[in-house]
Amino acid sequence: MLDGGGDLLLAGHGRYVGPGGESTFRTHGKTRLAYHYYDADDDGTPKLGLNELRWRAGWPVFK
């Protein structure tokens, strides 16, 4: 990855700083991505993020 391989799945933006620690799980027929981030609008308080994932040609994409 240091030499240009791989793709970025989740990046920080705005109030969402340092997202990481991703895990996936399936519930009610949907795949979810769970991760932590630091909330820049709340003095850096760590929080949990959840996003629905869909799959396109075998690769995850955010809904």
Rank of each mutant, 00 (worst) to 15 (best):
Gly18Lys: 06
Gly18Gln: 14
Pro19Tyr: 07
Pro19Glu: 01
Pro19Leu: 01
Pro19His: 01
Pro19Gly: 01
Gly20Thr: 04
Gly20Pro: 06
Gly20Tyr: 02
Gly21Met: 03
Gly21Ser: 12
Gly21His: 11
Gly21Glu: 01
Gly21Tyr: 12
Gly21Arg: 03
Glu22Thr: 06
Glu22Asp: 03
Ser23Phe: 10
Thr24Phe: 00
Thr24Met: 01
Thr24Gly: 03
Thr24His: 02
Thr24Asn: 03
Phe25Asp: 03
Phe25Thr: 05
Phe25His: 08
Arg26Thr: 13
Arg26Ser: 09
Arg26Tyr: 09
Thr27Leu: 07
Thr27Tyr: 08
His28Lys: 12
His28Asp: 11
His28Ala: 11
His28Tyr: 11
Gly29Thr: 11
Gly29Arg: 11
Gly29Met: 06
Gly29Ile: 12
Lys30Phe: 07
Lys30Arg: 15
Thr31Lys: 04
Thr31Arg: 06
Thr31His: 05
Thr31Pro: 02
Thr31Val: 14
Arg32His: 14
Arg32Val: 04
Arg32Trp: 15
Arg32Lys: 13
Leu33Thr: 00
Leu33Asp: 01
Ala34Pro: 01
Tyr35Asp: 00
Tyr35Ile: 00
His36Asp: 02
His36Ala: 05
His36Asn: 07
His36Gly: 08
His36Gln: 10
Tyr37Ala: 03
Tyr37Glu: 02
Tyr37Cys: 00
Tyr37Val: 04
Tyr38Ser: 04
Tyr38Thr: 08
Tyr38Glu: 02
Asp39Phe: 09
Asp39Glu: 13
Asp39Val: 13
Asp39Ser: 14
Ala40Pro: 02
Ala40Leu: 12
Ala40Asn: 10
Asp41Phe: 13
Asp41Arg: 15
Asp41Thr: 15
Asp41His: 15
Asp42Pro: 03
Asp42Ala: 14
Asp42Gln: 07
Asp42Asn: 13
Asp42Tyr: 11
Asp43Met: 11
Asp43Ala: 13
Asp43Leu: 10
Asp43Lys: 15
Asp43Val: 14
Asp43Pro: 05
Gly44Gln: 07
Gly44Met: 05
Gly44Phe: 09
Gly44Asp: 07
Gly44His: 09
Gly44Leu: 02
Gly44Lys: 04
Gly44Cys: 02
Thr45Arg: 14
Thr45Trp: 10
Thr45Val: 12
Thr45Phe: 09
Pro46Tyr: 06
Pro46Thr: 15
Pro46Asn: 08
Lys47Ala: 08
Lys47Gly: 01
Lys47Phe: 08
Lys47Tyr: 09
Lys47Met: 10
Leu48Met: 13
Leu48Asp: 07
Gly49His: 03
Gly49Gln: 06
Gly49Val: 01
Gly49Phe: 05
Gly49Leu: 06
Gly49Arg: 00
Leu50Pro: 01
Leu50Val: 15
Leu50Ala: 04
Asn51Thr: 11
Asn51Trp: 00
Asn51Ser: 08
Asn51His: 11
Asn51Cys: 04
Glu52Gln: 13
Glu52Val: 15
Glu52Arg: 15
Glu52His: 10
Glu52Leu: 03
Leu53Glu: 02
Leu53Phe: 09
Leu53Ile: 13
Leu53Tyr: 04
Leu53Cys: 04
Leu53Asp: 02
Arg54His: 10
Arg54Pro: 00
Arg54Met: 08
Arg54Thr: 14
Trp55Asp: 08
Arg56Lys: 12
Arg56Gln: 10
Ala57Arg: 14
Ala57Tyr: 10
Ala57Leu: 09
Gly58Tyr: 11
Gly58His: 14
Gly58Trp: 11
Gly58Thr: 14
Trp59His: 14
Trp59Asp: 09
Trp59Ile: 06
Pro60Ala: 07
Pro60Trp: 00
Val61Lys: 13
Val61Met: 08
Val61Asp: 04
